[in-house]
Computed example of a mutant assay.
Amino acid sequence: MYHVLVVEDELLIRDAVVEMVNQLDGFKVTGEAGSCEEGWRQLRELWPTVLITDIQLPDSDGLELIQRIRNDKLPVVAIIISGHDSFPYAQNAIRLHVSEYLLKPISEGELHEALARSVSRLEAIADSNRLLREIQSFIDDLQDNASIALFEQADRLLSRIYHLRGLEPGVKASYYRIFLSKLVEVVKVIHPDLPQADVPEDGSEHQVKQVFRDVLHEWIRRYPHFANNQMRLVIKRACDYIEAHLQDELGLKQMSDYCNLSPSYFGVLFKQYTGKSFVNYVNQIRMDKAMELLRDSDMKIYEVAEEVGFASLPYFNRVFKTVTTLTPNEYRRGLGV
């Protein structure tokens, strides 16, 4: 199954693209975003194999997002959808090795054909993509593992990077940087004065592993004390705010400002204490409220969607099914309502 991230700020178009992708066997939309920055954040958390992005976004453009992917040598196939038949845009897309350049309005057939033409490229990057997702799982589960297990798991992942074959120059170094930056970001939450850590250029496998072991040692030494300190109250306050403001726009930047923390610091802290990413947590709370309204009121489904903060009914339906495995209608029928 190939995972797809759709970045498009126009909700109706995004809804249509997501629906088209999900109709094609072997592809599944695992993330949606309406801006370049949100798309970049989700890309580095979900690690999709396919990016479908509009060129014109509120804060930047899709080409900027693809440029970041190329700079970090990430295993992602990029497809552009654009409302402009612009030669300079197309030139830049070719320079960035974009797989497809589709003009709006796009049809389901056009998009399916574009994805089908991308399969050979997707097969070539599958192993690298799987490795990055395993690195993400390691970071997400740090607090759940004993010290010996952490060292063993990190060593296995680093050995896989070290022995990767057939990659263009710089890919291994990029994967080391991604892994180390994510690990350091988490550890700095509990140890802000953590010394600078860098993977030595042309270092041996043992030298690389030692850098990671030193950082992990700080996590193991400090986390038990940190887990019981006042930061629990900060996240509890954020969770209370979320429950009281479900109808409002609830973004990571807004909530981190509310808690007087940087977005990256807040995101890491939030996941450590709730076990979910910020987006997944908010969606779960919204769906819990939606299920309550579907059970206990005669509100129409679009009214329930608006009540829990969704401007787009198709998007609400998708999130509801992702969380509950049922559509809102199926859920309500199952209750005999």
Results as ranks from 00 to 15, higher is better:
D54V: 06
A238C: 08
N260Q: 12
R121E: 15
N280L: 11
L12R: 07
N283D: 15
V6K: 05
Q56N: 13
V29S: 03
D288P: 00
I220Q: 01
E249L: 04
L313Q: 10
G31K: 08
Y223S: 05
G109W: 07
S204Y: 06
K188Y: 05
H163C: 01
V184H: 07
L65Y: 11
Q210F: 09
G26V: 14
A78R: 01
D202I: 03
Y89G: 00
E108K: 05
N22V: 10
R41S: 09
L246K: 08
V308S: 02
P169L: 03
S264R: 12
C259F: 02
V77M: 01
R68I: 06
L293I: 06
I178R: 15
D198I: 11
S181C: 01
L167P: 00
V119S: 12
H217W: 12
W40C: 05
H163G: 00
N228Q: 14
Y162P: 00
K321R: 15
V268R: 06
S262G: 15
A126P: 00
A114Y: 05
Y2S: 12
D9L: 02
R95I: 08
F138K: 07
L111A: 03
I220S: 01
Y302K: 11
P195G: 12
R213P: 00
R68V: 06
A146Q: 10
E8D: 10
V308E: 04
D257H: 13
S120K: 15
L326F: 10
N317V: 09
P328C: 07
A149R: 11
Q196T: 15
P195L: 13
F138N: 07
